[in-house]
């Protein structure tokens, strides 16, 4: 009796004041059949990496509105690497200026989803990403 479930961590790094978007995504992914570990606001990079390790997630989704992504994301990617979790795809969403997207991709962020992305799009992207892995 094998029942493989996809587990994803949805985390909000930094000092954002609300997490409405992240919650919408979390709920949509649950409805798409994923196990979503949701950790709430104001996560440090250390907290996110350690949670990804303990929960043995298949993916990490980061949501950020504050504009601090260029500082926080590299730190999170580095910590994941250090913990031997460098192969986990990391997705990003929230408010991210277009010009930053190629830089984030280069850095190793697997996908960037701005405002207006449908939750189906995200679920579909996750399926494709895991198939390739």
């Amino acid at each position: 009796m094998a029942e493989r479930k996809v587990r994803i961590l949805i985390a909000k790094p930094g000092l954002d004041g609300h997490d409405r978007g992240a919650k919408v995504v979390a709920r949509a992914l649950r409805d798409a059949g994923l196990e979503v570990i949701y950790t709430g606001l104001r996560q440090t990079p250390e907290m996110i990496a350690e949670t990804a390790l303990q929960e043995d997630v298949d993916l990490v989704g980061l949501s950020i509105l504050s504009g601090a992504h260029m500082t926080l994301f590299p730190r999170i990617l580095k910590l994941l690497q250090e913990k031997g979790l460098g192969d986990i795809p990391v997705l990003a969403g929230g408010i991210i200026p277009d010009e930053d997207i190629p830089v984030l991709r280069e850095m190793g962020i697997a996908g960037v989803f701005g405002p207006g992305t449908s939750t189906q799009e995200i679920a579909e992207f996750i399926n494709q990403t895991l198939k390739r892995a």
């Binding site: 479930k5 709920r27 709430g40």
Partner: peptide, 13 residues
């Protein structure tokens, strides 16, 4: 859906 929202960590940050 077979999915789940696991949120207990919010209170254990």
């Amino acid at each position: 859906s077979g999915g789940a929202l696991l949120g207990d960590r919010i209170r254990m940050q």
